[in-house]
Simulated scan of single mutants.
Amino acid sequence: MNLVSIIIPVYNQEKYLTETLNSVLSQTYSNWECVLVNDGSSDNSVSILSEYVSKDNRFVFINSENKGVSSARNLGLKRATGYFILFLDGDDLIHPDKITLAISSFQKNINLDIVFNCTNYFQNTVDNTLYPITLNSNLLNFNDLLLFWGDRIIIPIHSAIIKKDLFDGIEYNCDLTAQEDWLVWLRLFQKNPKTLVLDSVLSYYRKHNESRTQSRSFEEDHFKAMEIFEKYMDLESYKSLLLHQTKRYYKRAYDNANKLNEIKRSKTFRAAFFVKSKLKKFRLLSIISFLSANFFKDEK
């Protein structure tokens, strides 16, 4: 049986870490190692990691100062000794049969480079599915990933098991704090890998307020990513990317303007505007605002 290296970067995820590591321990495929990379956590994460390292020698611990998720994943890749790579974040989960089913697919077709599966986006418990994340195998190519990422396609990092040699010459860009996974997928698909998508939910992507995607805006990071992408692709591909991104944002702006106009034309909006204008006319609006601010403010 081929060894699978599971790489988990961890930064202050004590609240979810035990559940994540238990999902690793529950794998029906036993020939794995789990490389735990502590990215300078200041909470109780290190104690939890140490507990699992002591109870099962398949867990390997790497301690690092806080340098970000890209650096942590790169450290894990350097330490990994497996034939296959599975990335898993410290707050997400994998199904007990995830590795077993992927390895079975690799064994049936030795030409495969990546095996994907479906993912559920969930909150609190895996039974509370917010929506499924499915992959269209027809879009799993360099050109479609380049143009339609975040629109028609998004790939959760833990939905894939990847042959390690596909990462030769590739690592996560530590200058990016967003879109770093998109760049890695693009570089992997520049190698034209053979892929398979399993029609089963085998990974679970957790929504919570502390996650990166919920706690910050990525506008600045997105434009920074566009600058960095230039050195990883040919000129025609880069021009296609910039042109498509421009069209995409113009379309969104146009759609949002139409939605705003529809709201303004609605009876509800016009009624509210009429009431507001009358209140303002009789100087009641400022009085209502004053009373609201002073008598209905939140208690501390």
Rank of each mutant, 00 (worst) to 15 (best):
S54F: 09
I103Q: 08
L198K: 02
D39L: 12
K251A: 13
N63L: 09
I263E: 14
Y232K: 03
A271G: 11
S217A: 02
K78V: 12
K267A: 00
F148P: 00
A225T: 08
K164H: 09
I157P: 00
I155G: 01
K55Y: 01
L135Y: 07
K276N: 07
L176G: 04
L166Q: 12
I99C: 10
D181K: 06
V201G: 05
T213A: 13
D181F: 05
R270G: 02
F122A: 14
Y204I: 04
D199L: 03
G169T: 12
I6L: 06
N173T: 04
F282Y: 15
P96I: 08
N124R: 06
K300Y: 13
N22Q: 14
K278V: 13
F148Q: 11
G82I: 00
R58S: 06
F167G: 07
L146S: 03
N12T: 10
Y83D: 14
F189R: 02
S47Y: 15
I6W: 01
E220R: 03
K276D: 10
K67A: 14
V10A: 13
R252K: 12
L202V: 06
M226K: 08
I99E: 03
S105N: 12
A102L: 00
E227G: 04
I263M: 13
L49R: 03
E219N: 07
Q107C: 11
N136F: 08
S200R: 03
F290T: 10
N74G: 13
S266G: 05
L49H: 04
L242P: 10
D89S: 11
P9H: 04
R79Y: 11
T213P: 00
V4G: 14
K164W: 02
Y172T: 08
N261A: 14
K78C: 01
N256E: 12
Q13D: 14
T28Y: 05
S30N: 15
S54K: 15
K15S: 15
T177A: 11
I85S: 07
F282T: 10
L279A: 05
T213I: 14
Y131E: 15
V46I: 15
L243R: 14
K67G: 08
M233D: 08
F84V: 01
F295C: 04
F269E: 06
A293T: 04
S237G: 02
L183D: 02
L36R: 07
G68C: 05
I110L: 08
R58H: 10
V46S: 12
L49A: 10
L49G: 06
L235G: 05
V46A: 06
F59C: 02
P132K: 06
Q190R: 10
R252Y: 11
P193C: 04
L176Q: 04
A178K: 13
K259T: 06
H244E: 06
I288G: 07
T100K: 06
S105Q: 11
N256G: 03
S286F: 11
E180K: 01
E171R: 09
G76T: 02
D43A: 06
N12G: 10
L241W: 01
E19H: 03
K264W: 00
A293I: 09
K224N: 13
